[in-house]
Design a binder for these strands. Structure first.
Length: 211
DNA sequence: GACCAGGTCCTTG
DNA sequence: CAAGGACATGGT
């Protein structure tokens, strides 16, 4: 919470940026980011990609189409992502929120970030990480995503704040550049997958990537 | 077969 | 509030 944590986070961000540079992350239009954000919950991205292709093949890759789609068909398309029944409900809930509260995805673009975030969090099945993913990657807002990986990485450096604290910490440290928000999150995931196996996280970032 | 994956919700203590 | 279980398929 103090300056010490800010410096550590700043250092991590700089190290990762220097190590990975600019990388492509989470392509897709706003609808597909919203869908992918739900599908990727506790699931590998490769499985999500497969499901997204399957949805697209059936013309179910938009909020509008999901709104009126047959739930069983959605379930079939996203089965490979696991939790497919509950995720189908969540997609339906998000599509319903979009329709009832805004009328279209384009209308959502006009909503201020905080209001949109509150609306998304009101949807059952959308928590902080999913909401921030949608805001950051789908609507290009300055809302940093804290996931399990990010939490694990900063913990290796002795930053033990909880997710809500981490979010504001990162948002204080990062430049006011939306692209930096996206890149930094991408770097966190990339690094964690490479070095932070659950078993031995002892080799922390400061060791693997010497500042 | 065991264990984990870019979470979230619900129930208990 | 913290902890534990449920949701489910696919890869190592």
């Amino acid at each position: 919470m103090s300056g010490s944590s800010s410096i550590k986070v700043h250092h991590i961000v700089r190290c990762l940026s220097g190590h990975y540079g600019e990388i492509a992350w989470w392509p897709g239009d706003t609808d597909e980011v919203m869908i992918g954000a739900i599908l990727t919950q506790q699931t590998r991205w490769e499985n999500v990609e497969h499901a997204l292709r399957e949805l697209k093949r059936r013309g179910l890759n938009t909020m509008l189409s999901l709104y009126s789609a047959d739930s069983h068909e959605i379930e079939e398309a996203i089965r490979c992502t696991g939790f497919f029944r509950i995720k189908t409900q969540r997609l339906k809930s998000l599509a319903t929120y979009m329709m009832k509260s805004h009328g279209s995805v384009d209308k959502m673009r006009q909503v201020p970030t905080e209001a949109l975030r509150a609306g998304l969090l009101g949807v059952k099945g959308i928590g902080e990480e999913t909401a921030d993913s949608i805001l950051c990657f789908g609507f290009l807002r300055d809302s940093f995503v804290i996931d399990a990986y990010t939490e694990r990485i900063v913990r290796c450096s002795g930053v033990n704040d909880k997710r809500q604290e981490l979010k504001s910490l990162f948002e204080r440290v990062l430049p006011r550049d939306q692209k930096a928000y996206r890149q930094t999150h991408a770097h966190m995931v990339e690094y964690a997958k490479e070095f932070c196996g659950k078993k031995r996280c002892s080799e922390c970032i400061l060791v693997n990537l010497k500042g």
